Computed example of a mutant assay.
Amino acid sequence: MNFPFEKFIKTLPASIADNYKPVVWIYSKTDVRVAFSYIITHLKRTYITYQYTSLESTDVDRLKLDQLLYTTFLGSSHLYSIMCVGDKGSHELLQERLNKYSGPHCIVIYSTDPLNLSDAMTDNIQYIEIPEFIDFNGCVDLLPVICSNKEHQKNAHYIATQLFKRSKKWPLETICALAYYAPLFDINSPSAVAMANYFAQLYGFQHSLFLLSQQFFSGKIPLFLSLWKEHSQIYPEQFWISFWSDQIWRAFFYLNYLKQGQHTQAKKIAFRLPFSFIERDWRLWDHIALQKLHTQLYQLDSKAKQGATYMALETLLLDGLLSIV
């Protein structure tokens, strides 16, 4: 049975301390590592009875995992957080070793793969699914987690109020970005409303860029063209050439690193790529097609200085999509 994310966030750290289970498994369909890092930071700040160690799933093999789980120093408990993003092998190992784990440590897992939770596992595993989008009430509950300073919480709340006037729900990662801006914001400034609206416009467009890239790499031509028509005129052609060059370049090296078995390097280069590409859509592409597309973008960059049009860029992207259909 899932533990509601809203209740989990609202009652941290009591949601772990009072409903103690040695394993907290946090799952999200999309990559929300920033949100997870804030949850862990909040736990470290408010739940100080534990020592803390952060790990990547690629650093933990069967032997090391067993050593971590069952070794204590003078009987003291430890808080371990393990990040498991797009790593099915480690996901299966963690599920196998933790499904009957009873302590003495607290293990917090973040995984992009769901947990097959049987009735026998519910006694020791607290399973939380993080939503991709949250509403205003969820945002208010999240603010103490991402902002430890009370004044910063007030600033973030003010920005969020303007943000949710534009849309009833926002991506969780956008809400986490409030933590970056809150220390710089002054709700008593004459320009406070303008700055809050600027944030809403900026991150609203960033989310649109994410969706645009997602539809492109998924090969969904009608959806991509619809979004492209809506957003292509917002920024100049030079911006779009730079944006797509970066996306294609990262996708090219992501594929190469995966084929070479360099999963750590693949994770690093995957930053800013849509999660759907990292998880599954990379299989639609080959590195030769991506290399060709990046070369064409480089050539278009030169032509743009001589008066190339959006239609040239649109045609280039469409040709790239048709190559995988």
Rank of each mutant, 00 (worst) to 15 (best):
311 M>P: 00
262 Q>T: 02
125 I>Y: 01
169 K>V: 11
142 L>N: 00
14 A>F: 09
246 D>T: 13
158 Y>N: 04
51 Q>S: 14
71 T>L: 12
71 T>M: 10
12 L>Q: 08
37 S>Q: 15
194 A>M: 11
60 V>E: 02
56 E>G: 11
232 S>H: 13
151 E>W: 07
126 Q>G: 03
288 I>R: 04
278 I>L: 06
152 H>C: 05
274 P>D: 04
231 H>S: 08
55 L>M: 09
210 F>P: 00
149 N>E: 11
59 D>C: 05
69 L>S: 01
186 D>I: 10
67 Q>T: 14
316 L>F: 08
213 S>W: 03
96 E>V: 08
87 D>K: 10
120 A>V: 04
236 P>M: 13
250 R>E: 10
253 F>Y: 15
120 A>S: 10
275 F>I: 10
50 Y>T: 03
105 H>M: 03
156 A>R: 04
64 K>Q: 15
246 D>W: 07
51 Q>P: 00
302 S>L: 13
259 K>F: 13
136 F>R: 05
69 L>E: 01
215 Q>K: 08
115 L>Y: 13
13 P>C: 05
10 K>H: 15
290 L>G: 07
189 S>E: 09
282 W>T: 03
275 F>R: 04
119 D>L: 11
244 W>Q: 02
141 D>Y: 06
212 L>M: 03
239 F>A: 11
142 L>A: 03
20 Y>T: 00
254 Y>G: 03
47 Y>H: 10
80 Y>I: 04
11 T>P: 02
132 E>S: 14
205 F>V: 12
147 C>Y: 09
